[in-house]
Design a binder for these strands. Structure first.
Length: 874
RNA sequence: GGGCCCUUAGCUCAGCUGGUUCAGAGCACCUGCCUUACAAGCAGGGGGUCACUGGUUCGAACCCAGUAGGGCCCACCA
């Protein structure tokens, strides 16, 4: 057996083994279900650190649930990610010299489908490398036929309920992807820009009026100049008209309290087509709306000689022209917030267009109540409830249409040119039926129907995910959905709280009248050591598969989990994976030790018996802690508790206690107990380190497939004697004291020491055998007086002596004791002060007072011991 | 502009209901060990005015107020 654990050799083997025996597959049965739906990654994405963290946590939860005898079901899948994927496909086609505009919708979808086939699902294969125990037979893709049908059916349902409407609104336009975006998909960034002061001539006079704008290129779409009615500087201009520079259009000067007299010059230009506020002003004052942009945000014919040029190019050029013709008064530095597309990074343009919206206000109500009042859905960490509340209570209608092809096409069918000449139906056939009725024209045919060109927002499919993966939209009463829904835990990043989590809660109540999940665990962002976000452009994101190669999947899992409290960002450092790998190796070697033992029918040494009894107590105490951590989703704390249990308590203490002398056999009773203990440890470790633990488990003895660790049983808590742990801790202090003396005096381990013990701390002497074994003592004796010519140390009020041949530095001993004495006296004083404070004695709970009394007694006893020693030394 | 959160050892973070010797853990660091499971290891050790100021309390890392610094979310001010 190699002395180093070699993960590469065994990981694939065990993953295949688990798959062959179908351990990850779940079907409804009598057991309690435990369900997680994966946050579906982009179908063409590759595994990054965020996925690794996120899915490791899910796997820990699901594997633990499986061990606890629940029917664990983890549904994997991918998301079609319409904007991102379509953008990638468009770019790829462009490279091949094909323009999207030259393709038919069908051809484009075929290209996109092929692309998805080629790259899609890579990420799922990578999850397998990480050890994720998903039920792969259930793998879903948000564009699968049944998933799409669910989406369409949900759309029709909401439309029929009057919750979906079509509206001509100002929306966020991504000129690069040439689609609208929801408000959530727009990211505002502060950018240093300029505030341009432009002078407009007043009609029929030489006077000018100066406005301030950040967007001089939009003057060609101006519909008015607006002043504050209370602003006396401009009151003489009321009712007059101004002339827009360059295009020389005459526009009214209007008044509105909206204008802030403090900002800029106190008057502004109104461009209803290109600003949401201006649009409101335009409607209020009945202004003309002049859209000067094309879909790609280049100027159209209203742009005159700038037609065809991008808005940012025009901004520069028009500034120059305005300057040359004297309209530009001045410019000022100005920081403004610029909206950019989450996906393409393009600067967003507000744009008026026909879009589909979902009314959110009423839908949000049960979702607000559920999370914030009833606690039916719990967020971890809790602080996200505030964010959730704020968004939900100020929710706005959701723009669900996208001007893309890659996605579910909106099931609206137009039969005429009028505003209302359309019907909504799940299929063209049904649409035709409806259209015949609505139009009153029984001769309509399918050919007369035009389906809406737009597709639905990707999130409009993923918000149904926990329901649709179990076909709960199309068949609301099927066995699967009734069994698995509501799911238990959701693990995801806080960045999609609004996009996805909140909307799933909404859809859960709308479509099933029930929460979609009980607990939401938000992971933090994975950052690099310098706290920078991991990103492709920075190149600071390590290659996930390479990490698994280098440290083993278990090592990486442990590394990621060790320092990632829920909701806290994780500063990733490969050293963490190294720690995980070291831990794996530690466990591996613990196993090698057991394997090397020869077992015989011998009487069990007292030390082993005690050690084992103690460890069992310690194990159960730790198990209690672990359960507590899990119940609060403190996954890294749970792991750390196991880490210390296995490394410190099991390896460093227990194994040393029971380890037989070199080339001696171990007694059978101890051996069997240790094997059992080791197996219990492996069970606790399994959710975190599935590969290593299964490998060892199967090496301990021959196991049938049913006996695999992955489907074994999580240890159940057994009551334990606290006193065992206390006694051990005391003994451990004594051992540590002796080791310190060995170290200070450079006494090799091989050399025997004698130990004399003075005094009466009521400590079980049983542990003497353990102390003796771990510190190599030739004898232990109890004495009534301090021992001369010995080094000493104290634990509580016990004093320990180790006689030394050769000179003892008495002065040093005295000094040491005096220091301890000083400290203890100081401590005693503080305790006494507390106890003599009447208000403390009267107000503090009895327990606390009793404890202080105990502290006092302990300190007094210790002082007595110390003083006696001093006397005997001097 | 509004809201939320954070500041504890060199680093990353626990510290749950104010009260156990409460000032902790892991890593890093220092010292000594190739001791026959493991140097990816063993044993031992150092290290913090709990951001600052004030208040409440018998008692504060923990509660309250303010100050400084950091972060996140939301919002249409040209």
């Amino acid at each position: 057996m190699p002395s180093k654990y070699e993960p590469r050799k065994i990981e694939n083997h065990w993953y295949n083994y688990w798959m062959e025996h179908n351990y990850f597959h779940s079907t409804p049965d009598n057991r309690e279900p435990y369900t997680i739906v994966i946050p579906p990654p982009n179908v063409t994405g590759i595994l990054h650190m965020g996925h690794m963290l996120n899915n490791t946590i899910q796997d820990v939860l699901i594997r633990r649930a499986r061990l606890m005898g629940k029917n664990a079901c983890w549904v994997p899948g991918t998301d079609h990610a319409s904007i991102a994927t379509e953008a990638k496909v468009v770019a790829k086609l462009k490279e091949e010299g094909i323009e999207k505009a030259d393709l038919s919708r069908e051809d484009f979808l075929k290209h996109a489908g092929d692309w998805t086939h080629e790259y899609g699902g890579v990420i799922l294969e990578q999850l397998k490398k990480l050890g994720c125990s998903c039920d792969w037979e259930r793998t879903k893709f948000t564009l699968d036929d049944d998933m799409s049908e669910s989406v369409i059916s949900a759309f029709v349902d909401l439309f029929n309920k009057g919750l979906i409407y079509r509206g001509y609104r100002m929306v966020n336009w991504d000129p690069e992807a040439q689609t609208t975006l929801s408000d959530e998909e727009v990211i505002y960034e502060e950018k240093q820009g300029l505030l341009y002061y432009l002078a407009y001539k007043i009609e029929g006079s030489d006077e000018t009026i100066t406005i301030a704008t950040t967007r001089p290129e939009t003057i060609l779409g101006d519909a008015a100049i607006c002043i504050n009615p209370n602003d006396e500087r401009y009151s003489h201009l009321k009712g007059k008209r101004a002339i827009v520079p360059i295009c020389n259009r005459v526009i009214p000067i209007i008044e509105d309290g909206y204008v802030d007299v403090e900002f800029g010059t106190g008057c502004l230009k109104v461009t209803p087509a290109h600003d949401i506020n201006d649009k409101a002003l335009g409607e209020k004052h009945n202004l003309e709306t002049i859209d000067i942009f094309n879909a790609d945000a280049s100027l159209n014919s209203f742009g005159l000689h700038y037609e065809g040029k991008d808005r940012f190019v025009v901004r520069k050029e028009i500034t120059k022209e305005l300057e040359e013709s004297g309209f530009l008064v001045k410019t000022e530095q100005h920081i403004n917030k610029v909206g950019t597309s989450e996906r393409t990074k393009a600067v967003i343009e507000p744009r008026l267009s026909d879009q589909w919206f979902l009314k959110m206000e009423d839908l949000a109500k049960p979702a607000i109540k559920s999370v914030l009042e009833d606690g039916e859905v719990k967020l971890y960490p809790k602080k996200f409830e505030n964010t959730y509340r704020h968004w939900m209570e100020n929710i706005r209608d959701w723009n669900i249409s996208r001007q893309l092809w890659w996605g579910q096409q909106i099931p609206a069918y137009y039969f005429g040119d009028g505003q209302n000449d359309f019907v909504v139906a799940t299929t063209p056939e049904k649409a035709l039926e409806a259209a015949k009725i609505k139009s009153g024209n029984a001769n309509l045919s399918i050919k007369d129907l035009r389906q809406d060109e737009d597709v639905l927002d990707t999130w409009f499919s993923s918000w149904l995910w926990p329901i649709s993966v179990f076909n709960g939209v199309l068949e609301p009463e099927n066995k699967e959905i009734e069994y698995y829904y509501p799911t238990n835990d959701l693990v995801t990043g806080p960045d999609i709280l609004f996009f996805w989590v909140a909307r799933m809660v909404v859809s859960g109540y709308e479509f099933r009248d029930e929460r979609p999940f009980e607990n939401v665990y938000f992971t933090g962002l994975v950052r690099d050591k310098q706290r920078r976000k991991m990103s492709k452009s920075l190149g600071n994101s390590p290659d996930a598969l390479k990490l698994i190669e280098d440290y083993g999947a278990d090592g990486v899992r442990v590394g990621l989990l060790l320092s990632s409290a829920a909701g806290n960002d994780l500063m990733f450092d490969e050293a963490l994976c190294q720690q995980g790998k070291n831990f794996a190796n530690k466990i591996w070697n613990g196993f090698r030790l057991l394997k090397g033992w020869e077992v015989e029918d011998l009487p069990q040494p007292e030390a082993s018996k005690l050690g084992i009894a103690w460890y069992n107590a310690k194990f159960n105490k730790t198990l209690e802690e672990i359960e507590n951590h899990f119940s609060k989703y403190r996954i890294s704390d749970a792991l750390m508790a196991i880490y210390k249990l296995v490394w410190d308590d099991y390896s460093s203490w227990l194994l040393e206690i029971v380890k037989p002398a070199y080339q001696h056999p171990i007694d059978k009773i101890s051996y069997e107990a240790i094997i059992h203990i080791f197996e219990q440890n492996l069970k606790l470790l399994h959710p975190f380190m599935p590969f290593l633990t299964e490998e060892i488990w199967q090496h301990i003895e021959e196991r049938s497939p049913e006996e695999a660790l992955v489907v074994s049983k999580w240890p159940s808590f057994v009551k334990f004697e606290e006193s065992l742990i206390k006694d051990f801790d005391f003994a451990a202090e004594v051992i540590s004291g002796i080791r310190t003396i060995r170290k200070e005096k450079n006494i090799p381990m091989k050399e025997y020491l004698e130990l004399s013990i003075l005094n009466g701390e009521k400590v079980a002497k049983d542990w003497d055998v353990v102390i003796s074994k771990l510190t190599n003592l030739s004898s232990i004796s109890y004495v009534d007086n301090a021992v001369d010519g010995a080094l000493s140390f104290r634990v509580k009020s016990n004093e320990y002596f180790i006689p030394m041949s050769g000179a003892i530095d008495v002065d040093a001993e005295i000094k040491k004791i005096q220091e301890e004495l000083k400290y203890t006296k100081g401590f005693l004083t503080s305790v006494q002060k507390k106890l003599s404070n009447e208000r403390f004695v009267n107000n503090a709970p009895e327990q606390v007072i009793a404890l202080e009394r105990k502290k006092q007694a302990d300190a007094e006893a210790k002082i007595e011991t110390l003083e006696k020693s001093l006397v005997s030394l001097t």
